[in-house]
C-alpha cells in the first residue's frame, strides 16, 4: 500500500507518497533529506529520533508516516529561524553540552517541548522530562545546565521577541547572539 500524505514539515506543507509500513524517521531522513533526526535504536529506548508532532515530543522510529497525515512535524532543522539559533541551541553551545552531537537533535526537541510547556522548569523537571534521551558522552550535567540556562534566556525581559516563524509550532523568544 502506498498513500499520499500531507504533513507540514518545519513550517512547510509537503505532499508525500509513502508506503504503509514507512516510518516517519526514514521518511524524514531519506525522502526529505532531514538527516538531523537520528536512528539510535529503532525501538524507543534512546530518544535520538525525537521530533515534535503538533508540538509533542514523539519517537519517529515508532511512528508510521501515514499516521501523521495532516500533522505539523518539527525537526531539529526547524529550530533555527532565518539562520538565527534558538536560545536553546545557543545555550547548548555555551554550556558545552554538545560532544559527539549524535544525541543533540533529539535532546533539543525534547527540551524545546519542555520549555514551551514549562517555561521555568526545575532541575528535577528537566531530569524527568529528558530521561528518555540517552547521551553517552556528556554525563548530562551540561545538558541540564543548558536547558535551565535557556529557560532563563527565554523568559529574559531584556530579550526582543523573535519574528514569528512561518508556520513553525509555538516558539519562544530570544535575541541572536554571536559566540
Amino acid at each position: 500500500m502506498r498513500r499520499m500524505i500531507r504533513i507540514r514539515v518545519n513550517g512547510e506543507w509537503r505532499e508525500l507518497s509513502v508506503a504503509g509500513n514507512a516510518l516517519l524517521l526514514n521518511v524524514l531522513r531519506e525522502d526529505e533529506g532531514l538527516t538531523g533526526t537520528k536512528y539510535g535504536c529503532g525501538i524507543g529506548e534512546c530518544g535520538a529520533c525525537t521530533v515534535r508532532i503538533d508540538g509533542e515530543p514523539v519517537l519517529s522510529c515508532l511512528t508510521l508516516a501515514v499516521a501523521v497525515d495532516g500533522c505539523e512535524v518539527q525537526t531539529v532543522e526547524g529550530l533555527a529561524v532565518d539562520g538565527r539559533l534558538d536560545p536553546l541551541q545557543e545555550a547548548m553551545l555555551d554550556t558545552a553540552a554538545v560532544q559527539c552531537g549524535f544525541c543533540t537533535p533529539g535532546m533539543l526537541m525534547t527540551a524545546r517541548a519542555l520549555l514551551d510547556e514549562t517555561p521555568a522548569p526545575s532541575e528535577q523537571d528537566v531530569r524527568d522530562h529528558m530521561k528518555g534521551n540517552l547521551c553517552r558522552c556528556t554525563g548530562y550535567a551540561s545538558i541540564v545546565r543548558a536547558v535551565l540556562e535557556a529557560a532563563n534566556r527565554d523568559g529574559g525581559p531584556e530579550m526582543a521577541p523573535k519574528p514569528p516563524a512561518l508556520g513553525a509550532p509555538r516558539r519562544s523568544r530570544g535575541a541572536p547572539r554571536t559566540p
Partner: peptide
C-alpha cells in the same frame, strides 16, 4: 532489523 518495518502493511 529495527531500521525498518518489514512486510507490507495496510493502514486504516
Amino acid at each position: 532489523n529495527s531500521h525498518l518495518l518489514l512486510g507490507e502493511l495496510d493502514y486504516v
